[in-house]
Design a binder for these strands. Structure first.
Lengths: 343, 343
DNA sequence: TATTGACAAGTAAACGATTCCATACTAAGT
DNA sequence: ACTTAGTATGGAATCGTTTACTTGTCAATA
């Protein structure tokens, strides 16, 4: 039994003592950054195994200033897509020995701020941020200048902002959705949007307006409901928009979770899709293959977006001062059977 | 403009210099753990604001050995429920100023080991583990003795294991599912299980056996398929089990993602549920309200399970040597319309 | 043989905080 | 007025690494 491991964690000092060398030599063996003679190498390797030594990242970080930690701040984590994105990011950064720190701000800018500071205090190496939109200047001025930053589904308009952006082309996508409804003969089109404080909400709203104008249709604010991208707000919006004497013939959902909420409302109330109301969604829906109706939609492929975000943040860590990059993915319309054709 | 902040991060030394006091005093002001005279207190507070100082967690951890970091290791992150659990854990621990480190092992024990070591190296304060099942002894002997550990959906049989467990009662739940099928007149019941290396797989398999024996039915291995709890394995299992000359009348899925995979297969092939085949699922399915068929199932409420796991791990951090605790949630059968009644 | 150079291995100073211990100063008791 | 006790503050060690600098050995060359 040459099992020397106590319950106490062993340090580089213990390894050095066990191997009969200095701690500097042990460090060199571990990091393989200087030449160490083969015999000593073997001795140290054995001592490492014998003592059960695992290098301490905390102490390492003290010197190297590198935590190999990426922070991912999500504003509404209930969206399963955000977690698919988290997974994709994690998968990419893992290959470079990074770990992912995840948190959710529940759409609260104050909490977002708290997390940002906590993560900075932890000296994260990079940040992927799905912001609430409440801290644009602070992020531009204080965060992004010192911390490699990638924004998801958000654009930061401030001049000072240094960082990258991953998004789908919201204006293009919602234009396609609206146009499709119009071309199927719909005129009274209700809109379920996200709030306009964030670029995602604005862009997608813009695309809808583009299409309406192009076809000379009136943009009627009474048919608009702006929620917070959540399932609940989708449900509430659908209720509000469709309990009128003259309900719209179609609903354009600018967020996938809002579409889920709206469709749950319709199904619950026995409102048939597409016979009673047509529905289109910006963003994919979980288990779409198993749904009673196959929604016409603009899919956002979260694994692709997440992978891109991971790549960009790693790249920016390598090269913090390169120009901002915007990864905007084109959108494709997938035709399901959730839209009634009046033509 | 008394804006002294350069791009350089300021340390406790800078604050001390700015306030004209020693670093020890600054530390005392920050931590409020010793008396400091009101005047100096004010001076230091001002200096902190002036320098834009944020305490460095890394350096703190060097002394205090406390990272306020909880690790969450998931074996198959593609299951949306795992991410709902992650969210619930994060929500609980956030209130005690902990952050969550998330990773996925893709069912690879080697990767799990790598992550475990990486997290130990990061000196995480606690661990929630959804293990692949490949490292039971190591976890019992090396991990759990020094690190507050909570297992999700897994039981560690080793005597040395020190830690808590969160699970639903798998034997009970799958017994209920099997019994329900039998009571609806099904006799040829196919089984889509998870692998038996993990307790979840074994317990649920056991419950099925209990029910079959109770009703004097033959347990026919030809009707069993053991996959890895994933959607893909569910799909493959369904294909294997239902491309025979005399297919079973019912499918008992012991994992929610497997059920998803199987149902996608059935729908794709035009096999009607429940007319052609009855399906029951252990575990809930995302957006079940929108599905073409409402599966009869045992729901596992991930937010509740996650919350429990978060509470247990925090509690164990406070009190590392208390006896192991097992949080086993009872199961309820939800009757949908995915089972044909032959009686 | 003496001098130089190469290079392996050790010594010690960081990194940024916390905290034990020492010190100096105030106030009270005889 | 002198000792003593109490206490606010500073000095310095410490946590576990990395790495610049130093030391010492040995082979090669003149």
């Amino acid at each position: 039994m040459n099992n020397n491991e106590n319950t106490q964690k062993s340090t580089i000092k213990d390894v050095a003592k066990a191997a009969g060398v200095s701690i500097a030599t042990v460090s060199r063996v571990i990091n393989k950054n200087y030449y160490v003679s083969p015999e000593i190498n073997v001795k140290v390797q054995n001592a490492i195994v014998q003592t059960g030594y695992v290098p301490d990242s905390i102490a390492r970080t003290m010197k190297s200033n590198n935590t190999n930690l990426i922070g991912f701040i999500v504003s509404n984590i209930s969206n399963p897509h955000m977690m698919t994105i988290a997974r994709a990011i994690e998968k990419v950064i893992r290959e470079s020995n990074y770990n992912l720190l995840v948190c959710s701000t529940e759409n609260d800018p104050t909490l977002e701020l708290k997390y940002l500071n906590a993560f900075i205090s932890r000296r994260i190496s990079g940040l992927v941020l799905h912001s609430t939109g409440g801290n644009e200047e602070y992020i531009a001025q204080k965060i992004s200048s010192t911390l490699p930053t990638v924004l998801m589904f958000r654009h930061n308009e401030c001049k000072e902002f240094v960082g990258d952006t991953v998004d789908t082309d919201g204006r293009q996508g919602s234009y396609k959705l609206a146009k499709h409804l119009i071309e199927c003969g719909h005129r009274r089109i209700a809109l379920l949007g996200g709030h306009l404080e964030v670029s995602t909400g604005r862009d997608r709203y813009q695309g809808y307006q583009d299409a309406m104008r192009e076809f000379g249709l009136e943009i009627n604010p009474e048919l608009h409901y702006f929620g917070d991208f959540s399932e609940l707000s989708g449900l509430q919006g659908a209720r509000k928009l469709f309990t009128t004497s003259n309900p719209p013939t179609a609903l354009l959902c600018l967020a996938n979770m809002a579409a889920v909420g709206a469709m749950k409302y319709f199904r619950d109330k026995g409102i048939h899709v597409p016979d009673d109301v047509s529905v289109v969604s910006y963003g994919d829906i979980e288990n779409v293959e198993l749904m009673w109706v196959n929604p016409t939609r603009i899919p956002q492929i979260p694994s692709v977006l997440g992978q891109k975000a991971g790549e960009l943040v790693l790249d920016r860590i390598q090269n913090p001062h390169r120009p901002n990059r915007e990864a905007t993915f084109d959108t494709d319309l997938i035709i399901g059977n959730s839209v009634k054709n009046y033509i």
